[in-house]
Deep mutational scan, measured.
Amino acid sequence: SKGEELFTGVVPILVELDGDVNGHKFSVSGEGEGDATYGKLTLKFICTTGKLPVPWPTLVTTLSYGVQCFSRYPDHMKQHDFFKSAMPEGYVQERTIFFKDDGNYKTRAEVKFEGDTLVNRIELKGIDFKEDGNILGHKLEYNYNSHNVYIMADKQKNGIKVNFKIRHNIEDGSVQLADHYQQNTPIGDGPVLLPDNHYLSTQSALSKDPNEKRDHMVLLEFVTAAGITHGMDELYK
């Protein structure tokens, strides 16, 4: 796709999030870079409003799984890469995230190029959380598991539907599940690639910047598309 050509090198990323969870309002600002050749993201996020009212790991899918245009699609799968094909005009990404036995996040993001920078601007609203639950009670460990993110075409809306389940580790050794339902639709009216069913395999590492006084998260992530085999004719070339 034409959009794919915008991702040949390292691309700067800007992320802006405004959130409200159970009436606790907050903002997060992030910057870093993405390299789609390797499916690599390096980002640093800062809570610009003081202390973040929710655990950082609960925002990873909104912040970095928010820029799935940096996923590495192998050559034989490039015609299934909706995310890059929607660029530079970008796409709207909407999600509902259900935390098992707790509340939910609803998010709406616009992901697009502004100049040479890929920008992810998000509004997040969280409701029905227990004040002493795993999320508002800050009981999650500061780490992140690997996940597969399942993608299918949504021809009606000229976009994709995505769903997956995140496993958050809790300090007591148990797990907090979070079910994600995602819809992506193009902002522009140019042609986009509608994929066959496949998935993104994601690995994320969270860390801290020892010199950063503000509440923050440093993230390194690798994302690769998989799940579609080479056609038989490919094998015999």
Rank of each mutant, 00 (worst) to 15 (best):
Y181N: 07
E31G: 08
E31A: 06
H180Q: 09
G126D: 00
G34C: 01
D196N: 12
S207C: 11
K51E: 08
H230R: 12
H216R: 01
S27I: 05
L193P: 07
D116G: 13
G231S: 11
F164H: 03
G50S: 02
N211T: 14
F222I: 08
V10G: 05
F7I: 05
D209V: 03
E16G: 04
D35E: 09
T229A: 12
N148I: 06
F113L: 09
D75N: 09
G103A: 03
G9R: 09
V21E: 00
M217V: 03
S85P: 03
L177F: 14
V67A: 11
V15F: 02
G137E: 07
K78T: 09
T8I: 10
I46V: 15
I166N: 04
K106E: 07
L41P: 01
I166L: 09
I187V: 14
L206Q: 02
K106M: 08
C47S: 06
S174G: 14
N145H: 12
S201G: 06
G66D: 00
F83Y: 14
R121H: 05
Y181S: 05
R167H: 15
N197H: 13
N148Y: 07
D132E: 07
D116A: 14
V218I: 15
F7L: 07
A226D: 10
E234D: 04
E234V: 10
P191T: 09
S201R: 11
I151F: 02
V192E: 06
Y105F: 15
H76N: 12
N22D: 06
I97F: 00
N134H: 04
R167L: 08
F98C: 13
L140Q: 03
T58A: 05
M152L: 10
A225T: 05
S146R: 12
F222S: 08
L52M: 05
D172A: 06
S29F: 09
F99C: 01
P186T: 13
Y105C: 02
A226T: 13
G188C: 15
F164C: 15
S64T: 05
D172H: 08
T117S: 06
N197D: 15
G115D: 08
E171K: 10
R167S: 05
D179N: 12
E94Q: 13
V223A: 03
R95P: 00
V21L: 03
G159S: 09
G190C: 12
Y73C: 01
E94D: 07
L200R: 00
D196Y: 05
T202I: 15
P186H: 04
T42N: 09
C69Y: 03
I122F: 00
I228N: 08
I151T: 02
T202P: 02
P53A: 02
D215G: 01
R108H: 05
H230N: 13
C69G: 03
K51T: 11
Y91N: 01
K2E: 08
N163S: 08
H138L: 04
K40E: 04
S64P: 00
T117A: 06
N211D: 12
K165R: 13
L220Q: 14
V192L: 10
A153V: 04
I135N: 03
I187N: 12
L136R: 08
K84T: 01
L59I: 07
P210H: 05
M152I: 14
D172G: 13
D233N: 05
V11A: 02
S207G: 08
L235V: 11
F222Y: 13
Y150N: 10
T62S: 14
G231C: 14
E16K: 14
S85A: 11
G159D: 11
D189G: 11
F222L: 09
S201I: 07
K161Q: 06
H198P: 01
F70L: 08
K112E: 03
L6V: 06
M217T: 03
K213T: 06
F164I: 06
F82I: 03
E221D: 03
P191S: 10
K125E: 07
Y144H: 07
K130R: 12
P12H: 02
Y150F: 08
H138R: 09
M217I: 04
I122A: 02
D116V: 07
H24Q: 15
T96A: 11
D101A: 06
K112R: 12
